[in-house]
Structure formats: C-alpha cells, structure tokens
C-alpha cells in the first residue's frame, strides 16, 4: 500500500445543530466515496443529520508560518482601521 493509493483526506463535519463545518481530523482512503464512509465511522458515530465534507489534503493550501508577521500583522498602530469610535445611532439594528 503506497501513500498514493491511500492518500490523506481532511474531514470537516457539521453537527446536527451546528452552523458551520468544523475540521474534525484526517484519514486515509482510496477515493472520496470511501473517505466519506470512513469519516462517518470515525468522526460522526453515525448521528443522524450531520453533514460531512472530505477534501484531499493536497487540495488545501495553507498559510506559511514563516510569513506570519507580514501576513497577519493586525496594524494595531493604525486605530482608524478599527471602527470603534463611532456611536451607534439608536434605531440601528443587527449591528
């Protein structure tokens, strides 16, 4: 069994009352169909009404830890970027 025959898949699960799919883990499977079935056994215990996504790990592009600073620098020294100074008028909803 080579790793190309049974590549790695990432599993995302949305629980029955969950709002979004959450990364649950990874597994090896020969194709997407089998990955789904394995994910069901491994990560959902077959609860009804959950949604599963499986993605080949090679399809995921991750941000690089080396570039963390320029990538994620929150520009905290530029307060005008953070809209915290505004009074919210009465009557505005859903903010």
């Amino acid at each position: 069994m080579s790793s190309t025959d049974w590549p790695l898949w990432e599993v995302f699960v949305r629980s029955r009352r969950g709002l979004s799919h959450t990364h649950a883990g990874s597994l090896h499977a020969p194709d997407a169909e089998m990955a789904l079935r394995n994910a069901r056994d491994l990560y959902t215990r077959r609860s009804e009404g959950v949604s599963i996504w499986v993605v080949p790990s090679t399809e995921i592009t991750a941000s690089s830890p080396d570039e963390k600073d320029p990538f994620f620098e929150p520009a905290a020294d530029k307060p005008y970027r953070h809209p915290t100074f505004y009074d919210i008028p009465e009557g505005v909803r859903h903010l």
Partner: peptide, 12 residues
C-alpha cells in the same frame, strides 16, 4: 484488517 479505516468499519 488491511487498513486501519477498514478495521473500524468492520468493527462498526
């Protein structure tokens, strides 16, 4: 079983 995932399936 041939692979770990299949082992879980059979046990299930």
């Amino acid at each position: 079983a041939p692979v770990l995932e299949e082992e879980v399936a059979l046990a299930n």
